[in-house]
Every structure is written in C-alpha cells, then in structure tokens.
Amino acid sequence: MAKAIFLSASVPDPKRSPKYDDTADSVAISSAVSALVHVILGRRLLVWGGHPATTPMIWFIAENIGVDYGKCVHLYQSNHFSDHFPEDNRRFQNVTYTDDIENDRDKSLTLMRQRMFKSHSFSAAVFIGGMDGILEEFDLFRQLQPNADVVPVVSTGGATIDLAERLKDHESYLEKDFDYISVFHQRLKIGFDEERNQI
C-alpha cells in the first residue's frame, strides 16, 4: 500500500498571527496546496486536519481528475470545531473525528494530531505557509514519525520559514522555485508517469 503524506497549510491571519502574516505569500500558499493535491492524489494517501476552506476544493479537484476522493484522502477533525465542519464530510467515509477535550482548543488539537500521526505510516510531511500550529504539528510529527521526510515549502512564507530554520538544511529550490508541480514531483520522489491507482 502507498505510504501517506501529511499536509499542513494555512494563510496566516493578520490579527491572530501578524508576525507570520508579514512574510506569508497567499498566492504561493494557494498554488502550493493545489499543486500538491494534483501531484499526489491517487498516488499517495493525503492525510490532513481537514481545513474547512480546502476540503471542498480537494474534493472538487479529485472529481475532475477522476480519482476516488473517499479513498485517496483521509481527514482528521476535532469535535471541538464541530460547528465549522464542511458539509462534504457527510458524503464520505474518510473522516476520523476525535474528542473535544474539556472544551479546550489546544488539548483537543493535540489529541487529534496524536491520533493522526499514530494511525498511518508516513513517507513525508509537507508544510506550507501557516501560523504557530505548524510548529506544534512539526514537533509531534517528528516525535511520532521519526523516519519520515519533512518538506518545508519556504517560498510560501509564514511559520514555514521558522520551521526551515529549525531544520537547518533544505534545498534552495524550496525557497525560490514557484513551479510547485515540479518541486513536489522532485522532492517527494513521485514519478511523472506514476499512475493514479495506487491506493
């Protein structure tokens, strides 16, 4: 079975995270997320925390390129955010819900991330833009998936820049190349000719 790839991505909010908003490039973040989805759908299992803005977009792309969204993507969602779940969740059996812990956002998110990182064998995690949550996700990912690759897409800015500094060494094209289709094929070692039927 194909290994999973974890996606962590968001556009920093200027009020919640002004520091990361200053360096983030929303166009690059959106392009990188879209490119990653195009490169891995059907080739690797895409696992992520079911961001309500992007979930419907991934479903839409999957339908248009002819892959089974319910099989190729697995979402994790904390019941702490149940008021914000996208309608699309109800249509598919690919969502794992985790408990709301004491109505506490941080505790609930940690539980969700632990469940997510313990439930799959990951080949890589891709970090795009983001706020403080990205650094917490990275720490937990490293702890629970020590052999998996970590890909900071530095050109998208935000907290991914801080993450790259922690990692110390990363390829220069992750800072400069905005052709994200090529970047992900190269960095994730996914052949251009790989069929989309590997899950």
Binding site: S10, V11, P14, H51, H84
Partner: peptide
C-alpha cells in the same frame, strides 16, 4: 469573527 471556511484567503479587517 471570520468563518474558518475562508482561512485560505487573504484578509483585511
């Protein structure tokens, strides 16, 4: 309070 469904957008408050 903005909706989380648009957290992929650029924001002006």
């Amino acid at each position: 309070q903005p909706n989380r469904s648009t957290d992929i957008a650029e924001t002006i408050y």
